[in-house]
Simulated scan of single mutants.
Amino acid sequence: MFGQLEHELDLNVPASEAWDLFGTLQIGKLVEQELPQLFQKVELTEGDGGVGTVLKLTFSPGVPGPASYKEKFTKVDNEKRIKEAEVVEGGYLELGFSLFRVRFEVIEKGEDSSILKSTIEYEVKEEHAGNASLVSVQPVATIAELAKNYLNRNKTAQQAK
C-alpha cells in the first residue's frame, strides 16, 4: 500500500534564504533547539549534509509513532532546491513500512516570497496496512511553521541593521 501526504506553507523570504536553512544541516539543529516537545535529539551520525548524510532522530516521550529512527539524505538538489531523506534504520521500518521518505522543496514564488512544500511518501506492507494511520503531516507542518518564524525573525533582524 502506497500513500502520500503533502503540506505547503508560504514563506515571506526569498527561496534562496529558505534553502540556506533547508538545504543544510541547519534545519536539524534548529528543530532540536526549538522543538523539544517533538524532538529530543537530532544527531549527525555520518556525512556533512550532502547525499549520504545520516541523521538519528529521537522523538520526545509521548509523540505518536516510532521513538527514533535513522534517516539518510538520498537527494540534495541545490538547483531545484529539493532535499529528500529516507528512513534507513528503525522507526517506521520496524512497523512494516518498506519506504518512508520525507521531501522538502523550496519553490520560488516571487522576489521576496517562496513556498515550502513538504511531502511524505510511504509504502507499507499489506499485513501492516493499519499502521498507515501512524503517518501524519503534522510533524513536517510544525517544522515548516518553526522555519517560517525563524526566517521571519532573521529577516526582521537584518532589516533593523
Score class of each variant (00 low, 15 high):
Ala18Ser: 08
Val63Met: 03
Arg153Glu: 15
Glu86Val: 05
Trp19Gly: 02
Lys29Asn: 12
Pro14Asn: 07
Gln26Leu: 13
Gln158His: 14
Arg103Phe: 09
Leu11Met: 05
Pro64Val: 01
Ser133Gln: 14
Thr142His: 03
Ala67His: 08
Lys72Gln: 15
Val76Ile: 09
Val51Lys: 09
His128Trp: 02
Leu99Val: 11
Asn131Leu: 02
Met1Trp: 06
Phe104Gln: 13
Leu35Gln: 13
Ile120His: 03
Ile143Gln: 14
Ser16Trp: 12
Glu105Pro: 05
Thr156Val: 15
Tyr92Asn: 12
Lys41Met: 04
Val124Thr: 07
Val42Cys: 14
Lys83Trp: 08
Glu126Ser: 13
Leu93Val: 11
Glu46Asn: 02
Asn131Cys: 12
Met1Asn: 12
Gln138Ala: 14
Tyr69Cys: 13
Glu17Ala: 08
Val31His: 01
Ser136Gln: 05
Val87Ser: 10
Leu11Ser: 01
Asn131Thr: 00
Ser16Leu: 01
Lys41Phe: 04
Lys161Thr: 15
Asp10Arg: 15
Leu151Ser: 09
Asn131Asp: 04
Ala144Asp: 15
Ala85Asp: 08
Glu32Phe: 06
Phe73His: 04
Gly47Met: 09
Leu21Ala: 03
Phe100Thr: 03
Lys109Gly: 06
Tyr122Glu: 04
Glu46Thr: 10
Ala85Cys: 06
Ala157Gln: 12
Glu8Asp: 14
Gly130Cys: 11
Gln37His: 15
Asp10Thr: 15
Ser60Gln: 10
Glu84Asp: 13
Leu55Tyr: 12
Ser114Cys: 04
Phe59Arg: 11
Ala85Val: 09
Lys148Asp: 02
Gln26Tyr: 09
Gly65Arg: 03
Lys70Gly: 03
Phe22Ser: 06
Gln40Lys: 14
Glu34Cys: 05
Pro14Thr: 00
Glu123Tyr: 07
Ala160Arg: 00
Leu57Ile: 13
His7Tyr: 14
Leu5Ser: 08
Gln138Leu: 11
Gly90Met: 11
Met1Ile: 00
Glu127Met: 11
Leu55Pro: 04
Lys125Ser: 10
Glu108Gly: 06
Glu121Cys: 10
Leu5Thr: 07
Ser113Thr: 10
Glu17Asp: 15
Asp10Cys: 11
Gln37Lys: 14
Leu35Pro: 08
Ser113Glu: 01
Ser60Trp: 06
Leu134Gly: 02
Ile115Pro: 01
Lys109Arg: 09
Gln158Val: 09
Ser60Asp: 08
Lys109Phe: 07
Glu121Thr: 10
Thr24Met: 08
Pro139Glu: 05
Glu89His: 01
Val124His: 10
Tyr69Met: 08
Val87Gln: 08
Glu121Ile: 10
Arg101Tyr: 02
Phe22Cys: 07
Asp20Thr: 11
Glu6Ser: 13
Arg153Trp: 12
Glu71Gly: 01
Asp112Asn: 13
Gly49Trp: 04
Asn78Trp: 06
Leu116Trp: 05
Lys75Gly: 08
Ser98Asp: 05
Gly23Tyr: 06
Thr45Phe: 02
Gly28Tyr: 08
Ala85Met: 03
Ser16Ile: 10
Ser133Asn: 14
